[in-house]
Amino acid sequence: MGKLIVNYSPHILHTDTTQGIMLDVIIALVPVSAFGIALFGPYVAAVIAVCIVAAVLSEYLFCKIAKQPNTISNLSAVVTGLLLALNLPPTFPLWMAAIGSAFAIIVVKQMFGGIGQNFANPAITARIMLTVSFPEAMTAWREPFAWLNKTADTVTTATPLSGGDFTPMRLILGQHGGCIGETCAIAIIIGGIYLLIRKVINPIIPFTYIATVGILAVAFGENPFIWIFTGGLLIGAFFMATDYVTSPTTRKGQLVFALGCGIITALIRKFGSYPEGVSFSILLMNILVPHINSLTKNKPFAWEKANHGKKN
């Protein structure tokens, strides 16, 4: 006789796993990382490796010490480390990168209860912590391909957001100063499209966010092209603002969230003392997510009729 299983619904489970989603994100980040290494040299590979190893090690040790089930196999620590590395300047000291990774995992993620419980995106928060702590190291931009020129491998340059003249082609291909993973727009967009096709992310947040920044750039009399294709906007919009844990659950809420991110980014870029505002805007909106969620709750079908029948 066959075994009869009696259980509560749902009876059909989706085959997505945390590990599978994280693997998709890692695959989507491969072109960005590859372009970063090509543009800024082999040292960048070391930064990426240190960030990933430090993140996984921190999670492993924290779970071990706090006697919690070990969660390193779901690859979320790898994603956090990789995203953080891509948000660092190409000459960033390795020990500072390791501190950032450990901070992201231990303070921002594990201390709030681990994956799914953190209220802010760990990589974004760690980036801000590093920006505030090590302002010089965090703004040491390098000229792309300078590493190929053996005589002058420390050519420093400015990010286009703080001034300078750039042709659109150079911006799209990433031939300008910036963080490891934020300069090459093409690679980020390829990764973003991969995530959209795999349905890992939905298009509401990235497109609303980028469009808001573009429109506000025009409104402020700035060049929208430079605003969209430089700085951390693309990588932030596709990979950081779409983090499941720290973005709203409803479509309406995601729209509000992305609009807020876009407005804060534009305001910081136009009026703030920092040239870039993507990380601050995402962190600020992360904090508002619980409120956005409760204010944009979907009403059940016919709820209004049942409760306010007299209106109709």
């Binding site: 500072m96 201390m111 912590m129 505030v132 090590f134 302002p135």
Partner: peptide, 22 residues
């Protein structure tokens, strides 16, 4: 070693405060 400046700024105060409460 370059110190982690954020620790003497207000956010660092909250980090240490929370950890010491724990």
């Amino acid at each position: 070693i370059e110190p982690i400046k954020v620790m003497v700024l207000p956010p660092g105060g909250f980090f240490v405060f929370g950890i010491l409460i724990a």
